[in-house]
Design a protein around this nucleic acid. Structure first.
Lengths: 96, 96
DNA sequence: TAAGTATTTAACTAAATACCTAAATACTGA
DNA sequence: TCAGTATTTAGGTATTTAGTTAAATACTTA
């Protein structure tokens, strides 16, 4: 279970970015930035962290970059939580 | 959706504590500490963060404190993730 | 009551994080 | 090619976090 996932979603602004992408499917950094007060550079950092955690992916078309959700990693955290609360199959990860 | 939850699970040592509690149901800080290299004080801090996020609860009996998982908050994160990835709600087999 | 064990709190340090501004890179269209 | 727009990178700062050791608190038992 990747540390980068948990780090990525630990920040409320990054969770908000995910919700925005959920709502609009595809957004450029410029469009995302309209929902925040901080600089474009700060936004770029957040996007990098989300990209590294594989939560979003970027497609460059010309001058713009289009960001979208990559939902597959979310499935992993659901499995992790299921394990903790004992709802479904259990593999022992206590040594990780 | 509480920030303290995401902060709490962002740390791998705290996630390991949760898995240990999942496995053993109830553990004292002393028993938990045997699985880590850091000081008891550091462990105490981690337990406080997990308590604040409502992920575990403590029962004091005499000289010992017994920690257990509080699974109800995990249901909340599952809902949050379901929302992000646009899945229908997970069926709830547990009562709380 | 005193000594011993269990756990938390306090005060501190080092490293990580989240932001900033400025500069760099990449593309578009005149 | 040049000016303009979009985005990222670099370098810096303030805040937060995760750990430390030492002291405090709480309980047990001789």
């Amino acid at each position: 279970m990747s540390d980068s996932f948990f780090k990525a979603i630990a920040d409320p602004n990054r969770r908000k970015i995910l919700m925005l992408l959920k709502k609009h499917q595809t957004l450029t950094p410029g469009e995302i930035g309209q929902h925040f007060e901080f600089s474009g550079a700060a936004l770029s950092e957040h996007l990098k962290i989300l990209r590294t955690a594989d939560l979003i992916y970027a497609q460059k078309r010309g001058q713009y970059i289009y960001y979208s959700l990559n939902t597959s990693v979310f499935e992993d955290i659901i499995s992790w939580i299921m394990q903790v609360i004992d709802k479904s199959e259990v593999k022992d990860e206590t040594t990780k």
